[in-house]
Design a protein around this nucleic acid. Structure first.
Length: 814
DNA sequence: ATTTTCGAGATTTTT
DNA sequence: TCTCGAAAAT
């Protein structure tokens, strides 16, 4: 039982044992992040006697959650696996299942995946007869995501309006909007209407609705805050603002929030993650894990070379104590085929030397890049498996099968439209339009409309009557049959299986068998729980990956995004041309932020490798960016001595890359990274997220400062430092406490706060009480970036905090 | 009314 | 290479 602590290094151990308060761990790639998290979980249960039911452990992917659960189960003898090791979305669904009835939604609300959203968007295109030149399905979804992410949705209470009368609410705002916005809001309204009609939430809504319920129903909020004594958050750098808001809300009572992340591995900026959120996380203690146990020093050197070109980051160099390994190889192909032939040749060679296929991974930026490697792998009869790509639950036959189940359970329009003519019942657009009209006239769901029309003898088509009979029968048997038997019945009676057999579609049939197996497995795993069809469908909607058999002895192919958090002895990063990685889409118009995110992606790719790293690219023409291919600028950033180039390469290609870099630099929008109008002055006392307290020695013209920290001075970007005080010339700082030495102190600012209509001063040495942190002493009051801040030492927390919100503070009489 | 065929145009990343 | 829509064929 004790052994979960074995083999931890001092920093990891510190992170495990710092159980109370807000702890931030900056965990570099391969620094034993998962190990630290699992050990901490076990420590909480084992040493502090906390029930796993009171520990929330949030991850970003199901894969990570499963891995975590598996590892923890190994140490906790009872097999005491709890429900609260899950993804953020998974946890929000738990919140919603319990309390969404308050918003008038059924417990078995539907979860829409991307394809469902897309088909809804297409309906809207048709209904509004939008100009196809101007609007596409993707376009519409972007508008909707944008509006949902915008302030209006939550703040102006549009979200609860999805329950009733939202239309009025939105339309009343229309007059203020110019024409284009008007169309956007119209699209948005119709989308919400469709969602409401079917009681369906998309992935974003899952988070927003959970926040809404917690914000508006105090007893619900209390319930969860009480329950969750400790919260652990994995991959914290990829949290969006909304997710942060949710997590902070959940943690507000016990305030034991432990976050682990690596700013250098932030690769979801495009989904709302902000590097600043992680850097600005207010914390009692920051622990840095910078020893890498995964990779050889050679590989780490390459990674460090690349990532240090990012300006907006924490300056930390990973080190490895492993012996020097195999040199990194770069291959240049004259064309794509040559590149892939070389990759496959190296795989064959490695395999002959005893490397298992399963230990080899091929990484790429975009999923369509698999094509060319696949061809070569097939030719040489090398087993391989693509992870992601068309995922299991996104396959047509699986979605069809699940749509049948969903139609039985809920009768929603999206499922209905998906399978009403699958397999073919010889029904076309005209037929569906009549049903749609009927449904609109009577304000009904499409399926209900169809059923009524059949009941009233308005439809006499045999195939349709059969269809309705089938669904009705399935509904009758819904509670008496197991889910797998129910599915069996539906697939047989609907002739879905027969239609596949007719096409001799062996693979699809096999996939359906696999689905049945996984349903059986699900039923067995939850045998004690009261699962119904609705719960099952929600669970499966979140579970987009099968990612089970990682053990299969086959070469792995995946996107870099999917490889996050994984490691492989041998890694190939392919298609490293400029425009591929960095992707031309991210860096056009000179987007500096875009380029930095791509660079982090490259960093993630390189740091997946344990022993051997291959980097390959080739000449030719790229359809996507409409340009010739040249080596990636990231290859250019690697010191030449750190890798060897193979293949016939004309050195002049590098200068083409250099031209691209130059063009980019000319177009770069530097204002993205411009610091605030903050003035930094020599002798200002500052605090840095990681290096702690320091004093400014020198202010440079390029938005950097030279800062004296305890043991050494560093030159840092202004953005990453925080002024905490200004005490006049010659003042000295205590590097431990951040306080000025007693001599030479200039005047202290005084902050006035309102309490019960009376103004009360807080100033240095004021004693205050905070609702969460308890009693504390004010060490300093200052203004930073236009915001009032108090620097306070709290007794209970045992550390100092910067407070920005005084609303709940009580000042104690001296 | 449905299915097949053909050609043009587009291609990131995920819960 | 794949996807989508329109036109032709069934």
């Amino acid at each position: 039982m004790e052994n979960y602590i074995e083999g931890l290094n001092p920093q990891q151990l510190e992170a495990v044992k710092a159980t109370e308060g807000r702890i931030r761990v900056v965990a570099g790639a391969g620094s034993g992040k998962t190990k630290t998290l699992t050990s901490r979980f076990c420590y909480l249960v084992d040493k502090l006697g906390i029930s796993p039911a009171h520990i929330l452990c949030l991850t970003f992917t199901n894969k990570a959650a499963n891995e975590m659960r598996k590892r923890i189960a190994k140490y906790l003898p009872d097999g005491d696996v709890n429900d609260f090791i899950c993804t953020i979305h998974g946890f929000c669904v738990k919140i919603l299942r319990r309390d969404i009835y308050r918003l008038g939604y059924p417990k078995s609300f539907t979860i829409l995946d991307e394809e469902d959203r897309k088909s809804t968007a297409k309906q809207i295109l048709k209904e509004l007869e939008l100009d196809r030149e101007k609007y596409s399905a993707k376009n519409i979804l972007d508008i909707i995501t944008g509006l949902k992410g915008g302030e209006d949705y939550i703040l102006k209470n549009l979200l609860p309006c999805t329950i009733k009368g939202f239309e009025k609410n939105i339309i009343s705002n229309l007059e203020d909007l110019d024409k284009e916005d008007c169309v956007n809001y119209k699209i948005f309204t119709i989308y919400l209407e469709k969602q409401l009609k079917n009681f369906s939430l998309d992935f974003d809504d899952i988070i927003y609705f959970a926040i809404y319920i917690l914000d508006n129903y105090d007893e619900v909020c209390q319930y969860w805050q009480d329950q969750l004594e400790y919260i652990l958050l994995d991959e914290a750098q990829d949290c969006s603002d909304r997710q942060w808001y949710l997590i902070e809300l959940l943690a507000a009572k016990h305030n034991n929030l432990f976050i682990v992340g690596d700013p250098d591995q932030l690769i979801y900026e495009w989904r709302g993650a902000k590097i600043e959120s992680f850097l600005a996380f207010e914390n009692d203690k920051t622990i840095i894990l910078d020893q890498n146990y995964r990779s050889t020093p050679d590989i780490l050197n390459v990674a460090n070379c690349i990532i240090k070109n990012n300006i907006n980051r924490l300056d930390k160099d990973l080190f490895s104590l492993r012996p020097t390994g195999k040199q990194i190889i770069h291959f240049h192909g004259r064309n794509e085929v040559e590149e892939m032939q070389w990759v496959v040749k190296e795989i064959v060679a490695a395999h002959k030397l005893g490397v298992n296929y399963r230990d080899i991974c091929i990484l790429y930026r975009a999923s369509h890049m698999t094509r060319c490697v696949e061809q070569e792998l097939i030719k040489k009869h090398i087993p391989y498996k693509i992870y992601g790509g068309i995922r299991f639950y996104e396959r047509k036959e699986i979605k069809d099968a699940l749509a049948y189940l969903r139609l039985v359970e809920k009768g929603d329009d999206i499922s209905f439209l998906r399978i009403i003519n699958t397999p073919s019942r010889k029904l076309g657009d005209v037929f569906i339009a009549t049903i749609q009209d009927y449904a609109t006239d009577h304000n009904m769901l499409l399926y209900d409309a169809l059923k009524q029309m059949v009941d009233y003898d308005l439809i006499k088509k045999e195939s349709v009557i059969q269809f309705v009979d089938l669904i009705q029968e399935a509904r009758n048997k819904q509670y008496s049959l197991s889910i797998s038997d129910l599915l069996d019945m539906i697939l047989k009676d609907s002739n879905y299986l027969d239609s596949l057999r007719l096409d001799a579609d062996e693979e699809r049939l096999q996939n359906l068998e696999e689905l049945k197996m996984s349903i059986k497995y699900y039923e067995e795993a939850n045998i004690n729980e009261d699962i119904d069809l609705g719960t099952f469908l929600q669970d499966i909607a979140l579970y987009t990956n099968t990612d089970t058999d990682m053990s299969l002895d086959a070469v792995k192919l995946m996107t870099i995004h999917q490889a996050k958090g994984l490691e492989f002895p041998c890694v190939f990063v392919i298609q490293l041309f400029d425009g591929g990685l960095p992707s031309y889409r991210s860096i056009r118009y000179g987007r500096a932020r875009g380029l930095e995110e791509e660079r982090r992606l490259m960093y993630v790719a390189v740091t997946r490798a344990e022993n051997i790293l291959y980097l390959s690219e080739s000449e030719g023409y790229d359809f996507a960016s409409n340009s010739d291919k040249y080596p990636s600028r990231f290859l250019r950033e690697i010191e030449r001595t750190l890798f060897v180039t193979k293949g016939k390469m004309n050195e002049s290609l590098w200068s083409e890359t250099d031209k691209l870099i130059k063009a980019f630099n000319n177009a770069t929008k530097h204002e993205e990274y411009k610091s605030d109008e903050e003035t930094f002055m020599v002798n200002d006392f500052i605090e840095h997220e990681v290096f702690g307290f320091g004093k400014i020695l020198q202010v440079n013209s390029d938005n950097t400062c030279k800062v004296q920290f305890k043991s050494r001075s560093r030159t840092l970007k202004n953005e990453v430092i925080n002024v905490i005080g200004r005490y006049g010339d010659g003042a000295e700082i205590d590097f431990e406490t951040g306080l000025p030495m007693e001599n030479n102190i200039a005047e202290h600012p005084v902050e006035k706060i309102k309490e019960n209509k009376n103004e009360i001063e807080i100033k240095k040495w004021s004693k205050i009480t905070h609702p969460i942190y308890g009693d504390g002493v004010v060490l300093n009051v200052y203004e930073h970036k236009g915001k009032r801040k108090a620097y306070v030492k709290f007794e209970q927390v045992g550390n100092k905090l910067i407070l920005t919100d005084y609303t709940n503070i009580r000042v104690n009489k001296p």
